[in-house]
């Protein structure tokens, strides 16, 4: 019974069925299937889609649709996990956002999905995120990874300001910082004091794993 619902849920994600994923997650909770196991099944499904994307077999619309299906199911399970006080096994946690003045979200969405697939717990701050909101999120979630995106040259420098603000708050060394986006280069990342950069979303997910030493 438990295994069957896990398979159905995986299929819902792989087949981009958000409604199905939500109702199956609820059903799993109602039927007292271990919520941690259900989360693992979801992660496995999104990893399968993420691998397909990285191998060039699937495309962005498929990746985003699968991520959407996962995103509707996740809060239902997280609530259950909180209630039971169970501890979720992850590679670590990541705070992700596009910097202030920049509303480009596609690259960031790809990175969020692939970090999740890799096994990270992801806190997506969205786009147009202010410096102080990044700092507050780092204080609040105490993540292993902070990933910032900027598509425009005019906003790329905001990444430096976030890093400076983290230094001023005395928490720069508590988090590994990755930067990305069309306006960013390896050299720029080094110059502003980031810990890592990759030009692609699958590369960013692999980089996060390296940065946390796993």
């Amino acid at each position: 019974m438990g295994t069957e619902i896990l398979e159905q849920l995986k299929r819902a994600v792989i087949e981009y069925d958000s409604d199905g994923a939500a109702s199956l997650a609820k059903k799993a909770v109602d039927e007292k299937v271990d919520a941690l196991e259900v989360m693992s099944a979801l992660t496995e499904a999104i990893r399968q889609v993420g691998d397909g994307f990285a191998e060039g077999k699937l495309w962005l619309p498929e990746l985003v649709a699968a991520a959407n299906a996962m995103q509707v199911a996740t809060p239902i399970l997280e609530e259950e996990i909180r209630k039971t006080g169970a501890k979720r096994e992850t590679l670590g946690s990541a705070v992700v956002g596009t910097v202030f003045g920049d509303i480009h979200s596609i690259g960031k969405a790809m990175v969020c999905t692939l970090l999740t697939a890799e096994g990270f717990e992801v806190h997506d701050l969205g786009v147009n995120v202010k410096v102080e909101d990044f700092v507050a999120a780092v204080k609040n979630y105490e993540p292993d990874i902070l990933a910032m995106s900027a598509l425009l040259t005019s906003t790329a420098l905001l990444q430096r300001r976030v890093i400076t603000a983290l230094k001023e708050a005395g928490i720069r060394d508590k988090v590994k910082i990755m930067v990305g986006g069309a306006a960013i280069t390896e050299e720029f990342a080094g110059k502003i004091g980031a810990d890592g950069y990759d030009p692609t979303a699958p590369g960013a997910a692999r980089l996060a794993r390296v940065l946390v030493g796993k």
Partner: peptide, 8 residues
């Protein structure tokens, strides 16, 4: 059109 590999 969006390039469905990169999002660009």
């Amino acid at each position: 059109p969006m390039d469905m590999r990169s999002g660009s």
